[in-house]
Design a protein around this nucleic acid. Structure first.
Lengths: 172, 172
DNA sequence: CGATGTTATGTTATAATGTAACATTATTGA
DNA sequence: TCAATAATGTTACATTATAACATAACATCG
């Protein structure tokens, strides 16, 4: 992350949503609260381990690998067998509360939960920050090509690796 | 693949380039010939193992995992240690002669070699066919967002999973 | 309540994917 | 032909992910 100010107030350095300087504690609270409300409404069980995994993810605007999550789980008194992490991640991604960043084989908490969307990511190769934005898959250029080919799109992975604004400036 | 006709003449069922019924032998020859010319021109070494890996990839309009490639290499008298496959794949992807499909952790031969491009893929979840098309990364919706955020895009992963035309029809 | 079906978790084992590191061989170019 | 570079051979291991089955928690309906 470009500039760390305090553990509570972090500069994130990309625009979409993980953007700009912000009270980062809000991100975590928002993610948890939104997930809680969403699960309650949809009659899904927001269990302790699922909550903890989302908390872990929401603590950073970066993607985190399953085994790193697993380590954090262990530190918090949960078991440390891979299925624990993968099952919680499956639940969170299935319901749009988190996403997998394919390019990194790692996971990130969603910054636009509840909204039906195709996520897209800007991944900084220097500071590892990952910013999420949303797309209408059908309106992308690939959507047009798919339509012309009678290909029925069901999911879209769109991720760009490069340099975020801060790191790009620093690299000059 | 939607309909197999003969080993030489295969219906591929998506439009972009792996499109339509075609003399599939041409795909393989083209891939090899283009790669050979490209390497000669760029003074790169198109070694036997690199050639064989490209041949293996070009035999299918599907993505193939590194270990499946490795097995094919072994059948052809090459060694079967992972680095053999990964090094050849690194060479081929670096020079745009093949691509990695991130969603599948697998590789596919490029159908638009030599042209500088951002590849994009339509992946059929039923028949596993993968069709490649090209994009101008900067002109995608994510390109616009990146520009607004001063994010310097260096690479783009764009992959859609869904149903190809044939499988979509069959699923009705 | 209590039986029962369903969902989630615990646990072991293993599969699949990918890389580091170093030795040897081949090729290039002075 | 020598030295530098690039490619391959080889061993070992790191990382990511899942199968399979047992137990526990929860829901709900009689």
């Amino acid at each position: 992350m470009p500039k760390k100010k305090t553990s509570e107030n972090v500069t994130v350095g990309i625009t979409p949503v993980a953007l700009k300087e912000h009270e980062h504690a809000h991100c975590i609270d928002d993610a948890i609260n939104t997930a809680e409300a969403y699960c309650k409404n949809a009659k899904l069980r927001f269990t302790p381990i699922r909550r903890k995994v989302l908390e872990i993810l929401a603590q950073e605007h970066r993607a985190i690998g399953a085994y790193a999550i697993l380590e954090r789980l262990r530190e918090n008194g949960f078991g440390s067998q891979p299925p624990l992490a993968y099952r919680a991640l499956e639940f969170l991604t299935k319901h749009g509360l988190a996403h997998k960043v394919e390019r990194l084989n790692a996971f990130i908490s969603c910054t636009h939960p509840t909204k039906e969307h195709s996520p897209a990511f800007l991944i900084c190769r220097t500071c590892s920050s990952v910013a999420e934005t949303t797309l209408d898959a059908a309106k992308t250029s690939l959507g047009g090509i798919a339509r012309a080919a009678n290909f029925r799109m069901e999911g879209l992975v769109m991720e760009s690796e490069g340099l975020c604004s801060s790191c790009s400036r620093a690299a000059t």
